[in-house]
Computed example of a mutant assay.
Amino acid sequence: MDDPRPPAEPQTFAEAADRMRSLAFRSDYVVREIPAPSGLAPDALALAGDVRPEEHGVDSPYGTGRFVLLHDPTGDDAWGGSWRIVCFAQAPLETEIGTDPLLADVAWSWLVDALDSRGARYHSESGTATKTLSKGFGSLADEGDGAQIELRASWSPTSDIAHHVRAWAELVCMLAGLPPGSEEIAVFGPRRSARG
């Protein structure tokens, strides 16, 4: 959502990084710090999140995401300030859901809803939502048909970074079929194989 007010600095990068590292998440969503991409900004911190991962450090078959906080104290015209968030979220889907023509629109609306519900204020948002359908052949024929939704987005935050991180976590869980309030609900298996 566009905010007509000039962006306010959320806090110093060190404070934002400490805040991100101190956050707790729902028990079925595991978040860890990963190396941040280099060359995008003088300061960067990246997180990876996985819904019910089977092995530490391996993308979950239920849903996975990345969150990168970028900071350039001199500001960036394209960002409209000195802060930028880049996020990624993906989850496997049942093939029937993957063919829904509104799926990409729904995925984007879930991001906007998550940001709004967490009080995460922002401007200069952009992104893509991609749905992929796949069919296995030859030695992969046994994997059958599959679908996946992937959302890549970026925006410039104007409020506490913690609100943005929590919104990203909520988005990844939503894409994986775990809406807010569904903590500790049993899941019997991924909705399809996690082939990308």
Rank of each mutant, 00 (worst) to 15 (best):
A167W: 03
A48M: 12
D50A: 09
V165L: 08
I185K: 13
L23M: 04
P6V: 07
A89I: 04
D18S: 14
F25N: 11
A141P: 01
D28K: 05
S124I: 13
S193G: 13
S22G: 10
V106D: 02
L140F: 03
G75T: 02
R19F: 03
W155N: 04
V172C: 01
D76N: 12
L175I: 15
L47E: 01
R21Y: 08
E15T: 15
A91C: 07
P101W: 06
S139Q: 13
S117H: 13
D2A: 15
W79Y: 05
D113F: 06
W110A: 06
W155V: 02
A78I: 13
D100N: 14
P92T: 04
G81V: 10
L175M: 15
V58E: 11
G138F: 13
V112F: 09
D18R: 08
Q90K: 04
A153V: 02
R166W: 00
D59F: 09
P35S: 04
S82E: 14
A41S: 07
P42A: 07
I34P: 05
A141K: 11
G49N: 00
W168N: 09
V86F: 00
G196P: 10
I161G: 01
G119E: 01
E125D: 15
D72F: 03
V31R: 01
L140H: 05
S156E: 00
L111W: 07
I161P: 01
A78G: 08
G75A: 07
Q148Y: 10
E96G: 13
D76P: 03
E184N: 15
D105F: 09
S156T: 12
K131V: 15
I34R: 12
R66W: 08
L140A: 04
G63W: 07
H164T: 01
D43T: 12
